[in-house]
Design a protein around this nucleic acid. Structure first.
Length: 267
DNA sequence: ATTGTGGCCTGCCCGC
DNA sequence: TGCGGGCAGGCCACAA
């Protein structure tokens, strides 16, 4: 479940490798290489390169290797973790494994100072890419403005939640963050995205930024107030009502039927 | 174009 | 104790 919060923690870890030179690349898992790139091409592009900086758009981590090299893109899917030597900012992912099996290392680079940065991903849902298309992603969710959110939602009949999960419209939110955000701001996830009024755009944009900041401070996408009740028979932490469990946007969705919804706006 | 669905990958947990 | 089925969700291909 790495969402932008986890990937931001990964980025901060990767940032520590700035100035180090890559002396060896481990890319033996062809499945993990995306965009049609071969292991040989990745090796050629990365070996000898020095890490210049890191960046992130939504759930995509990018590593800048200088002007004469392609940008290294890292995606983590749902169970991917980034580990520098033995240091992992996320010990165990919410729906991942608590083990750290070396057999799950899908990609790694070794630096000239002997340190090693690796992706450990049991389910191989993440991937490595060269020069990823950052432009295909929507605006960054953690800093989204009303002016950015409005066009992402307006005119759409799709459920609000589905649009917020669409990385081409808004980059960074995953299932847990969206449910937490909508619950906090009392929106019905199933409501048509295009039905929001101007004041609601403001309320939602603000809720997205605040929820991301709050859960980042707490340490993960799974630290939301709704999380403990994300199960059948779960109850709304605010009013105690039995939570709705539905599939919206193809994802399991928990929401409070009592204190959310168009018929029951915020008090 | 937009929206919905199913599949990919595989560990884990539950019930029998 | 072992086993099978369901489940988790980020992402992409594909269908309507």
């Amino acid at each position: 479940m790495p969402e932008l919060i986890e990937v931001e923690l990964y980025r901060r870890l990767a940032e520590r490798t700035v100035g180090r030179r890559i002396v060896e690349v481990e890319a033996s898992d062809a499945w993990f290489l995306k965009g049609g790139v071969t292991a040989a091409e990745v090796l050629g592009a990365l070996e000898g390169a020095t890490v210049v900086g890191t960046d992130r758009r939504g759930k995509l981590l990018t590593v800048d290797l200088g002007d004469d090299r392609p940008v290294l893109g890292l995606r983590f899917g749902m169970t991917g973790r980034l580990v520098l030597d033995d240091e992992a900012p996320i010990e165990a992912l919410e729906y991942g494994s608590s083990r750290d099996d070396p057999g799950w290392d899908r990609f790694a680079v070794r630096f000239d100072d002997g340190t090693r940065l690796r992706t450990n991903d049991p389910r191989r849902l993440g991937g490595v890419e060269l020069d990823p298309d950052v432009g295909a992603l929507g605006p960054e969710a953690s800093t989204v403005t009303v002016a950015q959110l409005r066009p992402a939602l307006s005119g759409s009949t799709a459920p609000l939640k589905a649009r917020l999960l669409d990385q081409a419209r808004l980059a960074g939110l995953g299932n847990l963050l969206v449910d937490e955000t909508l619950w906090r701001s009392r929106f019905d996830p199933a409501r048509p995205a295009g039905s929001l009024a101007a004041a609601e755009h403001r309320r939602l944009a603000s809720a997205i930024r605040r929820t991301v900041a709050d859960l980042l401070a707490r340490g993960g996408s799974h630290t939301g107030d709704l999380q403990a009740q994300r199960h059948r028979d779960g109850r709304c932490p605010r009013c105690g009502t039995l939570l709705d469990r539905r599939s919206i946007g193809g994802r399991t969705t928990y929401s409070c039927p009592s204190c959310t919804g168009p018929a029951a706006p915020a008090r």
